[in-house]
């Protein structure tokens, strides 16, 4: 095991009676990319602000790169690169000027500073806008300037609050590769509410809900908890052809719910080609596609499509973040929706 770079012990932050963070403990090692996942207001940013010594925890402590946040905040800050939420920048400055300023604040001057800036500008693909004022840049560019600033001094620990927001898919892929590359030899914490992003970028996921850490595992292990999901498209003509299935919705769903291992069956809205679509959820991680196919054939249904959505992090996320009991003393800022019904895709995952 490589050395522990971030060690948080019982971090608690209270704002009046409300607990923004409730006794959070975790470790991050060198060469790890850790994703913070959670609904808005769950405590992701609070944790990051504590780790960067911007705010102090009400209780608990943390060590970063061997520096204690209470005893040596300057040492902590020297060890990190930080991208705060919503990417604040000195918008009146030019990109190059800004990066020079940030490098200088990090103690880089002259030739090493120039080299470091050249390197991050290449890594974050900022070459074309280097001479432009930041206020004229699009959100994607600003985001990358923010990331470049966090990287310029090659910190052993990177803390990125929503690094992918505002990036188009191509840019996101570029930044994701960059983060993974950095994560190989350094330590990265990033927060997001994009589940797909966590799965491809992070080796470990911490799910935070209402200030508590409700899960700490690899994305694979977490998605296995949610079982498997299958999407089945049925040719409507084959349904019409069977008198026993034609009128009755329950008869149709029972074709699939009868399969051993399938827990719930729900009919979704029809596909564009008119096919009837069913969502099947299985708690077991075994592949049931063959069984589904056989069941359909036995019932005389024609399948036009059968897909397995092996990873089901979304489901796990939903369960963990909506069923967790409210933190004690919380005045309840429950603006996230509490419906446990497994209806259409969560807005947050888009």
């Amino acid at each position: 095991m490589s050395e522990v770079m971030i060690e948080a012990r019982n971090l608690t932050k209270r704002y009046g009676p409300q607990r923004a963070l409730d006794s959070a403990s975790f470790e991050v090692r060198k060469g790890e990319v850790l994703g913070f996942l959670g609904p808005n207001g769950a405590g992701k940013s609070t944790t990051m602000k504590i780790l960067t010594c911007f705010i102090a925890p009400t209780e608990g402590t943390a060590r970063i790169n061997g520096h204690d946040i209470w005893e040596d905040p300057i040492g902590v800050r020297a060890s990190i690169g930080y991208l705060p939420e919503s990417t604040p920048l000195y918008t009146e400055m030019m990109v190059l000027e800004y990066l020079e300023f940030m490098a200088q604040m990090r103690g880089l001057k002259g030739d090493p500073a120039r080299k470091a800036i050249k390197k991050v500008v290449e890594a974050t693909m900022l070459g074309d806008v280097i001479g432009k004022e930041i206020r004229t840049l699009s959100k994607g560019f600003r985001q990358r300037v923010g990331i470049a600033q966090a990287l310029v001094h090659e910190p052993p620990v990177l803390i990125l609050d929503e690094p992918m927001s505002g990036l188009d898919p191509n840019q996101a892929i570029g930044i994701r590769d960059l983060i993974r590359e950095i994560g190989k030899e350094r330590t990265v914490i990033l927060s997001t509410h994009n589940l797909a992003e966590v799965q491809v970028t992070c080796q470990r996921v911490l799910i935070i809900a209402r200030g508590r850490i409700v899960a700490d595992d690899t994305p694979e292990a977490l998605s296995r908890q949610g079982g498997r999901r299958y999407v089945v498209h049925v040719d409507p003509a084959s349904v019409e052809a069977k008198a026993s299935l034609r009128g009755s919705k329950t008869a149709l769903t029972s074709v699939f719910s009868g399969i051993a291992g399938i827990d719930t069956v729900r009919e979704a809205s029809p596909a564009a080609d008119g096919a009837r679509v069913f969502d099947l959820v299985a708690s077991a991680s075994a592949d049931l596609r063959a069984a589904i196919f056989r069941a359909a054939v036995e019932a005389g249904l024609v399948l036009v499509e059968l897909r397995s959505k092996g990873e089901n992090l979304e489901q796990v996320f939903r369960e963990l973040t909506t069923t967790a009991a409210p933190a004690a003393g919380s005045t309840g800022s429950d603006d996230e929706n509490d419906d446990d019904e497994d209806d259409d895709e969560d807005e947050e995952t888009k």
Binding site: K49, R77, Y82, P84, S86, R106, G107
Partner: peptide, 14 residues
């Protein structure tokens, strides 16, 4: 207001 204070404060300085 713009949030750059957070950036400034988290630099290694007092």
């Amino acid at each position: 207001r713009s949030g750059t204070l957070e950036l400034l404060i988290t630099m290694p300085l007092r």
